[in-house]
């Protein structure tokens, strides 16, 4: 019995599933991370993922090619990021309430538009989603090939987001400005840099990444759009950002760890499903996120200016 549970780990399918499950979490976590580094908590994440999933899928369903679908999802994410930034950065409204409002708004608008474009039918319409793209030579490798090199282009793209965000945050003047905007916006203002503009741009980029995380679900992981399909992944990503202590490389680790446990959970369910009801396995991702937050809480150092609106000419 114990042997069965260990055998899962040497199964290439398990590792491939881990990679697939990690992608939407990774994109969403990186997106939230960029927002929070600039000092803006973006709880619109769940809704932005949902509308990203809907828009990317619908664009392809309406005849656009897959890359246009990805672009459409990113653009709608960016647009909602602009709305979130307009409220929280320029108007200084509560970041918590705005985020929840954006989540409610983006997901319900997505459903409304989806129903408007596609009247209800018994079988959900499908698109031809991203197909596996074997990396030459590497995909031939035993075990490793099947586990890591036979994924879709979108999957490789999701993982390339890690070096992109690392480069953006650590190698560009904009990244530096984002980090200062999240730690000490007065210092940024003193340099003559527009704090509000930097924060807004960071939220736009972050929100585009979140929408891509949602689009991954409908365009690569599955080939249809379902209501409620994001299913709390956004909230899990917010927890993962804390777990990663706002570092992109640790976000990668967190997303993989989390996805691995989730993939394992599905397989353990098949092995122990007769003994333990499936609902308890499904609870694990949510419970683990809470545990991850509690574990990280002790050593966590939040960006200092997180949740604090900045107004030119006002002291803080």
């Amino acid at each position: 019995m114990i042997f069965d549970f260990l055998e899962v780990l040497v199964n290439a399918g398990f590792w491939a599933a881990t990679i697939r499950i990690a992608c939407p979490l990774l994109l969403a976590t990186l997106g939230e991370l960029v927002c929070e580094r600039a000092g803006v908590l973006n709880l619109g994440i769940e809704g932005i993922m949902s509308i990203g999933a809907m828009v990317g899928w619908t664009a392809v369903y309406m005849g656009a090619d897959l890359s246009t679908g990805i672009l459409a999802a990113a653009l709608v994410g960016a647009a909602f990021g602009l709305v979130h930034a307009g409220f929280t950065v320029y108007l200084g409204a509560s970041q918590h309430v705005t985020g929840i409002g954006i989540t409610l708004f983006a997901s319900s608008m997505g459903y409304f538009a989806f129903r408007l474009l596609l009247p209800s039918s018994t079988t959900p319409p499908k698109i031809i989603a991203f197909q596996p793209l074997d990396i030459p030579i590497f995909s031939e490798l035993p075990f490793l090939g099947e586990a890591f090199f036979q994924h879709t282009a979108f999957t490789y793209l999701a993982f390339l987001a890690v070096p992109f965000v690392l480069w953006l945050m650590n190698r560009t003047p904009f990244g530096l400005a984002v980090k200062v905007a999240g730690e000490n916006p007065m210092a940024l203002e003193a340099q003559g840099i527009d704090v509000l503009g930097v924060r807004t741009l960071a939220v736009i980029i972050g929100s585009a990444l979140m929408a891509l995380g949602g689009a991954y679900l409908t365009m690569s992981a599955f080939d249809a759009f379902y209501f409620g399909m994001v299913n709390g992944r956004g909230w899990i990503a917010v927890a993962l950002v804390i777990f990663a202590s706002w570092r992109p490389s640790k976000a990668l680790l967190g997303a993989l760890l989390f996805a691995g446990l989730d993939a394992y959970q599905v397989r353990a369910q098949q092995l122990a499903g007769a003994v333990i009801p499936y609902q308890f396995f499904l609870m694990l991702p949510y419970l683990l996120s809470i545990v991850a937050m509690v574990v990280a809480a002790k050593s966590t150092r939040y960006p200092k200016a997180l949740l604090t609106p900045f107004r030119r000419g006002e002291r803080h």
Binding site: F87, S94, T98, G101, L104, S108, R115
Partner: peptide, 17 residues
């Protein structure tokens, strides 16, 4: 679509803000 009700509810949150 009935989702209009949910859109209205969500819009109130943003409008009140």
């Amino acid at each position: 679509p009935t989702y209009l009700a949910d859109v209205i509810v969500a819009t109130t949150v943003l409008a009140v803000l």
